[in-house]
Every structure is written in structure tokens, then in C-alpha cells.
Nucleic acid binder design. Structure first.
Length: 355
DNA sequence: CCCCTGCGACTGGTTACTTCA
DNA sequence: TATGAAGTAACCAGTCGCAGG
């Protein structure tokens, strides 16, 4: 037993709900005027739901996951028998045709747990009039998460995902969201067999802190060592293998990258700190040496008459030739060398073809 | 009981890419 | 066909808050 979803301005967009056969939304149907957006849910068995096929032309490279889902649905469709003698499914025309969705328990319409508090559809209202309020941030999943939470392990988040999709669809009326909501709806009724259900209690109000098991963490660590980033397929595979939601895998890798970067930053900082200490020590030594030289200058005033030493380096062989000249320059006013150093030592880069 | 740390999860911003008018 | 707006996904930096030591 699963759910089907349709958007459109016709009261019965699901032909299969009348004939148990084919739910095929043509492209023209998808491109209906969204301002008159309606929302229709079909409740039927899986065979019927798998007949639900959406022509999605928005096939960007990043939509492979969704495309895969569509493929799986198509495969299931082809493998399933069209002559399934299942009981007729139930169709719910929610908006704006039949305002059956009401949160108060005493209302005449049907109520859904995921909409009981946050989304109220008022009778006769248009889709735009749906009120979304008191939504805890933790219960609102991003579009991305909605997409990725379409794993079989995510029945709890699927509720939130559907909640988000529902509001999003009604707000934006996008074809993509149509398909996303379809996927979410399809997965809502899958049994809660994973730890993902422990994220929230039965009231759906609190989110328990999830701790990955050692095995999961180790597996993720190994995967991270192989590649620090994941493509959608890898993410899906990892999530399936670890019985986690793809969003959890993605978050884990994001946090892991952040921690790796932080650790690397700490290492770099430590290295730079040591370099700084070394340079400080070197600077201190050179300063001390300079002071000694200056002291030597004051105690030995005739030092400037010492011959200057000229170092000449051969650019080819880098040999340094030392020549002693008597070209030490002394300032006539200060009786000090023109430069601040006591010994005029220069390295001349010259052509020394003779060496 | 309080504090600290680790970490899962979320939010807002940025960027690259795709689609469409 | 070129182009800009809009949408989307992925990523990152920062932060929150829970759980365990």
C-alpha cells in the first residue's frame, strides 16, 4: 500500500485511480498552470503506485539519483502485472478541490501526522493560503536533504521530507518537486526498520542525538581515506551499506573534511610557530653579533683602515673569489664607513669567464 | 552537578552548472 | 544563437546542542 501524488488543476489527475492501470502524466500535464495548482494524493497498492510515471525533462547531471529512482520505478512498472486484481485505490483530492485536510481532530477532513500541526489547509483555500508555522528548524529539511532522504532507511525523515516537499510544491509548483514529493510519498509507508527512526520520538518533537557506531565510523573513515568527497552514487551506496541516510553520509563527510582541515591548520600553525621561534632565535643571535661588532668598532677606532674585502662570485661555478683592496670608504664627517657595517663586504656577480 | 570536548546536524553564503525565456 | 535571470546542487564556514567523559 503506497501513496501517489499528482499536481494539476483537474479534480482527478490519476486515471489509474479509476482504472487501476496507468498513471501517466504527460509533459503537457506537468506544464499546467501552476498558479491553479492543485494537490491530489492517491492511496493504492504498490503496483498501482509504480505505474506512476513522471516525464521529467529536467535531467541535469546532478539529477542522476532522481533519474535512477525513476528508472527503478519504470523497471518495477515493466515487471509488474497490469492486470493486478487489487482493490481499487483511494484518491484524495486535497487542494483546492476538496479541502479534506484539517489539523483539528474534530474536523471532518482527514488529518495527517506530518501536517497536523505545521500545515493547515483551510477549506476552499488556494494552495498559496496554506499556513506553515511552528515548524521546528530541525524538522525542516532542505531540498537537498529531501532529495537524498529518499532512501528506504529514512521513513522518519521522509515524513519531514514530505512535509517540506508538500509546502515547496504548493509554493513553487515545480516539476522537480512533483517528482520529489512522489518519491517521498512512495517511501512514507516503508517500514521503520532502521536506526533513523530514533531521531525523533513518537511525537516527532524531539531529535535524539545520533551516534554512529564504531563500525559505521570505521567504514566511513576508510571511505574518506580513499576519497574525501563523494559523488551521489558513492553517497547512496555508502548510505545503503551503512544503513544510514545519504544526508547523514554527506554531513559526516562535510564534518570530516572540516575537521581534517582544522587539524591540518593546527599542524601548519605549529610548524609556523616553530619557524617563528627559530627565526626569532636567529634574529636574536644576529642582533647580538651586530652589537658586538658595534662595540668592537667603538673600542678599535682604526678598524676602518683595515682593507676591505671584496667577494666575487662566479655565476657559473659559484666559486667565491676573495680580493683584498684598499677601497674602504670613510665618511669624512663622521670618520665612519659609509655603510653601517664595519667591513665593506660585497659580493659581486660578475662574468668570470676565466674560472 | 558542572564543565569540557567530540561530533552530528543545521544554517547561511558562495560557486558552478543547467534551464529557459 | 547569445545572453541574462532563475533554479539547483554541492560545498564550506560557522554554529548549535546533545552525549559522554
Amino acid at each position: 500500500m503506497e501513496l501517489a501524488l499528482s499536481l494539476g488543476d483537474t479534480p482527478k489527475p490519476f486515471s489509474l485511480l479509476d482504472h487501476h492501470t496507468n498513471i501517466s502524466l504527460s509533459q503537457s500535464q506537468q506544464q499546467q498552470k501552476m498558479k491553479d495548482l492543485g494537490f491530489c494524493m492517491g492511496l493504492g497498492n504498490k503496483t498501482n503506485i509504480q505505474d506512476l510515471h513522471f516525464n521529467n525533462n529536467m535531467s541535469s547531471s546532478k539529477d542522476k539519483t532522481d533519474d535512477d529512482t525513476c528508472k527503478k520505478l519504470d523497471e518495477s512498472k515493466s515487471s509488474s502485472s497490469s492486470s493486478d486484481p487489487s482493490p481499487p485505490p483511494l484518491q484524495l483530492d486535497l487542494l483546492p478541490f476538496t479541502p479534506v485536510l484539517r489539523s483539528p481532530p474534530h474536523s471532518t477532513g482527514l488529518s495527517f501526522p506530518w501536517l497536523s500541526k505545521n500545515v493547515i489547509v483551510e477549506p476552499g483555500s488556494q494552495a498559496k493560503q496554506i499556513k506553515v508555522h511552528d515548524v521546528k528548524p530541525s524538522t525542516i529539511l532542505s531540498d537537498q536533504e529531501t532529495r537524498e532522504d529518499s532512501s528506504p532507511n529514512n521513513s522518519n525523515s521522509q515524513t519531514s521530507s514530505f512535509q517540506m516537499d508538500f509546502a515547496s510544491i504548493l509554493k513553487n509548483g515545480r516539476k522537480r518537486d512533483l517528482e520529489l514529493a512522489k518519491t517521498s510519498l512512495e517511501l512514507v509507508e516503508i517500514s521503520n526498520c532502521s536506526r533513523g527512526m530514533s531521531d525523533e520520538d513518537e511525537n516527532g518533537l524531539t531529535r535524539k542525538k545520533l551516534r554512529l557506531t564504531k563500525e559505521q565510523s570505521a567504514f566511513l573513515e576508510d571511505s574518506f581515506k580513499e576519497h574525501s568527497t563523494l559523488n551521489p552514487k558513492q553517497k547512496q551506496a555508502l548510505a545503503k551499506q551503512l544503513n544510514l541516510r545519504p544526508r547523514q553520509v554527506e554531513v559526516w563527510f562535510q564534518n570530516r573534511r572540516a575537521r581534517t582541515k582544522l587539524k591540518q591548520t593546527e599542524v601548519d600553525c605549529e610548524y609556523l610557530k616553530r619557524c617563528c621561534e627559530t627565526l626569532t632565535e636567529e634574529n636574536r643571535r644576529l642582533q647580538k653579533e651586530l652589537q658586538e661588532l658595534r662595540a668592537l668598532k667603538t673600542t678599535q677606532p682604526f678598524y676602518m683602515q683595515m682593507p676591505a674585502t671584496t667577494l666575487t662570485m662566479c655565476p657559473s661555478c659559484e666559486r667565491v673569489a676573495t680580493t683584498t683592496t684598499h677601497t674602504a670608504t670613510v665618511s669624512p664627517r663622521t670618520q665612519q664607513p659609509a655603510n653601517s657595517t664595519a667591513i665593506d663586504t660585497s659580493i659581486k656577480m660578475s662574468n668570470m669567464s676565466s674560472c
